[in-house]
């Protein structure tokens, strides 16, 4: 006897919708005897603005590098919208954008040339790349500095330029490593709004950070990584469990330091 189906079979678009934008399984990486990433499983839904948080040295950058095809994992798989990053890099690289942590750009190009270069590298015709460059420079508030060399840019300007480069080919999934590190509040706000707008259009964003307030404000999904493992993952509300994200993070990862015992001379009242 055949069980009647509970409902109509899922259609192709519905299947695509159900499939996570980023699916990571058993990802591992060791450098010598140090295990930087010790087996990560992670699903990020489409249209999500997800944060990957963790203390320094937790494995955030290593994980993101492996997810974007820039560092070969020892083990594990990464699929982006159903495309395997490590077996089909051609298709995978076409649909992702990456802003690395240490933004090392071609700093002898001007900001304008850099964005055009990025667009053309990703296969855009030169005219389209130039048109999109102008629009991105405008949105990123870099128009006045468009003709200056990137070498002369401040940290915030470099981050914005890198973001422009990562967005110019309209990727489906955007990876950012510490996007607001060293960025002034005004530039940070520009980046934040751009990311929210990008995710609201159905694209997916995964960024690493250790600025909890930022993650709490903008992310709908949070994963906490510590010592190369994901210790908790879920919606932002689930992860913080009624506390601030900062407190939840410290509770999970553990506080460090001894509150400065032995510094009795420090402070005005010590004379």
């Amino acid at each position: 006897m055949v069980e009647p189906a509970a409902g109509p079979p899922p259609t192709a678009p519905a299947q695509a919708q159900a499939q996570p934008a980023i699916a990571v399984r058993g990802l591992r990486k060791s450098f010598g005897s140090k295990e930087a990433v010790a087996g990560i499983d992670l699903d990020i839904a489409r249209g999500s603005l997800a944060g990957l948080v963790g203390p320094n040295g937790a494995g955030k950058t290593t994980s993101l590098s492996m997810m974007t095809g820039l560092l070969r994992p020892d083990m594990g798989t990464v699929t982006i919208n159903g495309v395997s990053v490590w077996t089909d890099p051609v298709s995978a690289k076409a649909i992702i954008g990456v802003v690395p942590a240490e933004v090392r750009l071609f700093d002898r190009l001007s900001g304008e040339e850099l964005l055009e270069y990025s667009g053309r590298l990703h296969g855009l015709p030169a005219t389209d790349a130039r048109a999109r460059t102008q629009q991105l420079l405008d949105v990123l508030d870099l128009k006045d500095d468009a003709k200056r060399l990137v070498a002369d840019y401040s940290t915030g300007m470099r981050k914005k330029a890198a973001l422009g480069c990562a967005l110019i080919h309209n990727p489906q999934v955007l990876f950012l490593d510490e996007p607001l590190e060293g960025v002034d509040p005004v530039s940070a706000d520009v980046i934040r709004r751009l990311l929210a707008r990008f995710a609201a259009s159905g694209s997916t964003v995964l960024f690493s950070s250790h600025v909890m307030e930022l993650v709490e404000q903008v992310c709908d999904h949070v994963s906490i990584i510590n010592a190369g493992r994901i210790v908790v993952t879920g919606t932002t509300d689930e992860v913080r469990g009624g506390k601030t994200l900062q407190q939840a993070f410290i509770d999970l990862v553990g506080a460090r330091g001894n509150d400065g015992e032995g510094l009795s001379w420090l402070g005005s009242s010590s004379g």
């Binding site: 820039l70 090392r104 071609f106």
Partner: peptide, 8 residues
Amino acid sequence: LFEALALP
């Protein structure tokens, strides 16, 4: 790295 992202 920047170029490698476009060299599949």
